[in-house]
């Protein structure tokens, strides 16, 4: 009896492995393909997964170097990918830092201090974060064109303006950090307050050092959200030199000037670091995601 069952378990395991590998092959195919394409000659070439005639031309262009084609012409890089990547990283890092700062102070007040309108604000935040910015793009555009008239450094076509716009999305982070603060014992802060510490000192010197893990999670989440954000950036940024990667990448696949190979190299080059950040951080992120989602 026991013998038969273990036999069926073995078959089941084998079936599971076969199914998973088949499924993975299907899922990973596009990613492997794009790596292969980045080493193929030309922008229209078709071929196998392992290119028969590998070239580094697409990678040189992606890294901002000019190349010389067979007829001896110099081909400059089609787009400033490295600059776009830098813009993206800059916007994402600064907005993530500011988001962490804004949402921790908010979360502290919601978790520890009592004030009028507290539960109303908490509920309102939960409802409003369901409305994505993409629904109000017209209003965003109108808002930023007004700002441009009165204070251009924060207006349309500027990175500070884009960072400023990203600061609106802190509701979920406030909830996450608030949940974490509530798991930390209050007694330490209370005794510090008895010794004459102000709420600000209790927050900065006692609560914050205990909350580094959740701040890291929120930072990475905010960073990834900002670096992959497309709609708002596509409305606010106009100059080619100011675009973020998410907005700029699509210009490679313009039907009039289809640069499939160049796109592949740029995509692998810029997508790899972001993917690695995500994979390294995923253990904590997954916890944060499910906690934030389930707790709500």
């Amino acid at each position: 009896m026991a013998m038969v069952e273990s036999q069926s378990v073995i078959y089941r395991k084998l079936a599971a492995h076969v199914f998973l590998w088949f499924f993975l092959a299907l899922i990973i195919f596009p990613l492997l393909m794009v790596i292969a394409i980045s080493f193929r000659t030309g922008n229209f070439a078709v071929g196998d997964i392992i290119p028969s005639n590998p070239t580094l031309d697409h990678w040189r262009l992606a890294l901002g170097m000019s190349i010389i084609d067979e007829s001896g012409r110099t081909i400059p890089p089609p787009f400033p990918v490295l600059l776009w990547l830098w813009n993206s990283v800059k916007v994402a890092v600064i907005s993530a830092i500011l988001i962490v700062a804004l949402s921790t102070t908010c979360a502290y007040a919601f978790a520890r201090l009592r004030f009028s309108g507290r539960s109303l604000l908490l509920k309102a935040m939960l409802i409003f974060q369901m409305f994505p910015a993409v629904l109000a793009l017209v209003a965003y555009y109108a808002l930023f064109s007004r700002i441009t008239e009165y204070f251009p450094p924060l207006g349309l076509n500027t990175h500070p303006g884009l960072i400023f716009a990203y600061l609106g999305g802190i509701a979920l982070h406030v909830w996450t950090i608030k949940g974490y603060f509530e798991t930390i014992d209050k007694s330490l802060e209370e005794s510090a307050m008895l010794d004459g510490a102000s709420p600000w000192q209790a927050f900065r010197l006692i609560l914050l050092p205990l909350s580094v893990p959740i701040l890291a999670v929120v930072f990475i989440l905010a960073f990834i959200t900002a670096i992959t954000e497309y709609p708002v950036a596509s409305i606010l940024l106009q100059d080619e030199a100011k675009l973020t990667l998410a907005v700029g990448s699509q210009y490679y696949l313009n039907p009039q000037e289809y640069k499939w190979g160049d796109f592949a190299a740029a995509a692998v080059m810029s997508g790899l670091p972001i993917t690695l950040v995500f994979l390294l951080a995923q253990r904590w992120l997954v916890g944060g995601l499910t906690a934030g989602g389930v707790k709500g």
Partner: peptide, 23 residues
């Protein structure tokens, strides 16, 4: 106490509530 929440709530107001109402 409201000093802690004002910056965050104000940006949420500018970039979530106001755009919705203005739309």
């Amino acid at each position: 106490v409201h000093r802690y929440i004002f910056p965050g709530v104000a940006t949420m107001f500018i970039f979530i509530v106001f755009p919705l109402a203005y739309t």
